[in-house]
Write a protein that binds this DNA or RNA. Structure first.
Lengths: 204, 204
DNA sequence: AAAATGTAACCTACCGGTACGGATCAGAAT
DNA sequence: ATTCTGATCCGTACCGGTAGGTTACATTTT
C-alpha cells in the first residue's frame, strides 16, 4: 500500500496554515511575518520563496477562506435540492451554527476588505471578487424561488449576512446575529408571489 | 464685541482633526503617528501630551465619530416626532444619503472593531459601547411602534444597518446597501400587529 | 544531481514614545 | 511702562525596537 505522504507538511503549507490562523484571529495587519514563520517552524526565505510578499500571503489566505466558505455554501444548498427558499434558509442555519464557535470573528474576507481600503491590494481583490460572486449566487436563488423582486431580495439577504458577520464580533453570545435567519425568512415571505396589492411588475 | 478666538486651532485639535480624517479613510492601523503630526503641522510630543498614546488618540477619534453619528440619528428622529416607524425609516434614509458620498467607507466604529479584536483596546471599548447603545435605542423605537417582536425586529434592523456599512465599502456605487431601506420597511411591516395567523404571544 | 529548506546575517524605513530646552503670555511687583 | 515670574504650550532631536524584505551560502531531502 502507498505510504501516507510525508508526515510533516511542506514549509509553504505550514506557513499558510499558521498565517491563516493568525490572520483570522488577530487581523492580518496585526501579525508580522516573523511571528508567522516562528510559529510555523519555518523561516522567512521559505515564506518569500513561496508567496513573494506578505500581501500575497494574505491573498492566499483569503483564497482558502473563500474556498472553505463556498464549500459550506454548496453543502447547505445540497441539503435541500430543488427548493431555493429552503436552500437559503439552510445557508443561514449553517451560518448561525458556525457563529456559535467561541473564536468566531466573522468573515475573514469582509474583515480584510475593512483592513485594506486600497483598491489595488491583492487581498482586497480576492475579497471583493468573492463578495461579488456571493451576490450573484444569491440572485440565482431568489430568481429560482420566483421572488417578486429577486435582486432586491438577494441584496437584502446579503445585508443580513454581512450584518451578522460584523455583529458577531461586536457582541459576544446573544448578539443581533441571532435574528438573521428569522429576518431572512420574513423577507423571503414578503417577496413571495401571492395575492397582493403591491406592484410586482418589474424586477428590482 | 469679543475678538474671535485665535484663528489657528490648538495643536491638539489640529491633530485630532487630521487623525480623524486619516483614520477613517485608511484605517487607524495603517496610519502612523508621524504622518498625522506632519499633516497636522504639529509634532509628536504635542500628540502624546494631549492624548497619551496612539491607542487613546484612536479612542478620541471614535468618540467624535459616535457624537456625529448620534447627532444625525437624533436629527432623523426629530424629523418625524411621535411616529417611530417613520423615524426608523428617516434614519435609514439619512444613512442612504450619507453612503452616496464618494469617500464613504462605512462606520468608523464598526471598522475599528474589526481592526482591533483585542477586547481591551480603548478604541474597541468605545466602538462596542456605541453599538450596544444603538441596539438599545433601536429597541426603544420598535417597542414604541408596538411591533410584535420588538427585540427581534430591532436586531434585524441592526443587521441591515451594519450590513449596509460593510457592503458600502465593498461595492462602490450600486451595492446591496441600496436595499437597506426597503428591507427595513418590509421587516417593520412584517412585525406590525394586524390580523395574523402567526404567534405573537411573547416578545422576541 | 536537483529541488526544497534552513542559517545567519543584513538592510532601510518606520514604528510608538520621550528628554529637554525654547517660546509665549498673564499677572504681580517695581 | 517695565521687569520678573510661573505656568502653559510647543518644537528639536533622539531613542530602542521592529516592520517587511533580501542576501549568500550551507544543508537536507528526494
Amino acid at each position: 500500500m502507498p505510504q501516507p505522504p510525508t508526515v510533516t507538511p511542506k514549509a509553504a503549507d505550514r506557513i499558510l496554515n499558521t498565517a491563516s490562523d493568525l490572520f483570522y484571529r488577530e487581523g492580518s495587519r496585526a501579525v508580522g511575518v516573523d511571528e508567522i514563520v516562528a510559529r510555523a517552524g519555518a523561516t522567512k526565505p521559505s515564506l518569500y520563496r513561496a508567496f513573494g510578499s506578505k500581501d500575497q500571503l494574505i491573498a492566499a489566505y483569503l483564497e482558502t477562506q473563500a474556498v472553505q466558505l463556498w464549500s459550506h455554501f454548496n453543502e447547505a444548498l445540497a441539503s435541500r435540492p430543488g427548493d431555493p427558499r429552503a436552500q437559503v434558509l439552510a445557508w443561514f442555519d449553517a451560518l448561525a451554527e458556525r457563529m456559535e464557535a467561541p473564536a468566531y470573528r466573522g468573515c475573514g474576507l469582509s474583515n480584510a476588505a475593512v483592513e485594506y481600503p486600497d483598491p489595488e491590494h491583492p487581498g482586497r481583490l480576492v475579497a471583493v471578487a468573492h463578495k461579488d460572486r456571493m451576490r450573484k449566487r444569491l440572485r440565482e436563488l431568489t430568481r429560482a424561488m420566483d421572488a417578486r423582486k429577486p435582486r432586491k431580495l438577494a441584496d437584502s439577504l446579503m445585508l443580513l449576512m454581512e450584518g451578522a458577520f460584523v455583529t458577531s464580533q461586536l457582541f459576544d453570545g446573544a448578539g443581533p446575529a441571532g435574528a438573521a435567519r428569522g429576518a431572512a425568512e420574513a423577507l423571503i415571505t414578503a417577496h413571495a408571489r401571492r395575492a397582493t396589492g403591491e406592484n410586482d411588475n418589474q424586477e428590482g
